[in-house]
Design a protein around this nucleic acid. Structure first.
Lengths: 220, 220
DNA sequence: AGGTCAATTTTGTGATCACATTTTTCGATG
DNA sequence: CATCGAAAAATGTGATCACAAAATTGACCT
């Protein structure tokens, strides 16, 4: 197999295991909507594309499957999940439950520097929309939300939410290309205003609508 | 390795893979509080106790680690998690967020047969308390809740909640043996009454207090 | 053309091995 | 008696292999 070619200077974590690299790589592809729903993957293919054997690929797949990022067929085949409309709505309602709570917990700790950072992420988000780039759009949108939620100091809740995002990743890409979004999500402004005003109720409402509204265009 | 000795008649799922058997076995041990926090496990030991090689043991551990049921040390050692007080409270507040919602969704579909079944599970729960049996107590308590939530028809939300239960499993055992519970959890009665009355607000409140109250005795 | 079935290829599973690292053991030393 | 350090044991990681099951292919027949 390939010599794996680790360049320590470029990695955040100094010594990543092979399985960890595969896991992070696949996870990002799924969460950022780089894969369409139903995309088939194979252990040998994953291994080859990361320059490792089947073993670390298998472990990464098990992990991601446990998080709902991938699904296994009865015969063990690996694909990105194809969600039913009911499932999409359920996941959206979980977001609507968790995200206002996380935002509310972050509110008291959200200083101006944080709001400025969110503002600049939101501008990158607008650029992604202008460039019709779905992956950048999804990535910056999640980054906008995560930047806020990190301040909530609630790692378990954020962890749960990220598995929900993971499950929605491929579907979000599909939805994005379907609705051909042309304007920025209107609720990000409301979120920023509520943060600046320190208005908990307005913040919760802004998040609930932001999260819910994006997935209202199903009609499959 | 051992011939694995599968007896199809005794298994619910007809053809379980080795990894699946290990996963289910470990998962139950963790969720039902059969393992104290900080219990060390080894891949070879797990494999031996299930009559399989390291490979399926490793996959099961990866899966359970992804669900928060087990933790990995920096050197890859496997233990059941030892939760900080902050983490316990955070997990409790997640329960307090999800469980009233699941109960509310189940309410309209909760017929009398379901309530009767919950009642009988609650009696088994009382017996477990009388017998000072922590594992039976935890098991029947979770079964009481899960029986209700299954009616919510919200598999993703229930799945998330089960990972929270998993994370709390070893800690619940520790808390149980610490407080030496002697009387039945008072809120199960309130839950049943609210179900019978079809009172959504009362049901939500009963669950929130039931879930929160059990973990108020920390004081580590 | 379309369908059927056998041959072939692809794929996941589980076991085993070599290896590096960590942990434990245990004796020597102060 | 405690502490340090070296030897020994235990452990996780990744690669490879054999095998069975599944999916694909392609020839053949109707």
């Amino acid at each position: 197999m390939q010599p794996a070619l680790i360049r320590p200077g470029l990695n955040d974590a100094p010594a990543q295991s092979a399985h960890e690299r595969v896991y992070r790589g696949l996870r990002q592809q799924v969460m950022h909507g780089e894969l369409n729903p139903g995309t088939a993957l194979t252990l040998r293919g994953i291994g080859k594309s990361f320059g490792v054997s089947m073993t670390p690929a298998r472990e990464a797949v098990r992990r991601l499957t446990a998080e709902g990022a991938l699904s296994l067929s009865a015969s063990g085949r690996v694909t990105t999940p194809e969600l039913s409309n009911e499932r999409i709505e359920e996941l959206a309602s979980i977001r609507a439950l968790l995200e206002p709570e996380l935002a509310s917990r972050a509110l008291r700790r959200a200083h101006l520097a944080l709001i400025d950072r969110m503002e600049s992420i939101n501008e990158a988000n607008a650029r992604a929309i202008h460039n019709q780039n779905p992956v950048d759009y999804i990535r910056t949108n999640l980054e906008f939300h995560r930047t806020l939620y990190l301040r909530a100091q609630s790692p378990a809740m954020l962890g749960l939410l990220e598995t929900v995002w993971l499950q929605l990743g491929p579907t979000m890409r599909m939805l994005y290309t379907r609705i051909r979004r042309t304007t920025a999500p209107p609720h990000h402004r409301l979120i920023l205003e509520a943060l600046r005003a320190g208005d908990d109720a307005a913040l919760r409402l802004a998040l609930r609508t932001d999260v819910t509204q994006g997935l209202r265009h199903l009609q499959v």
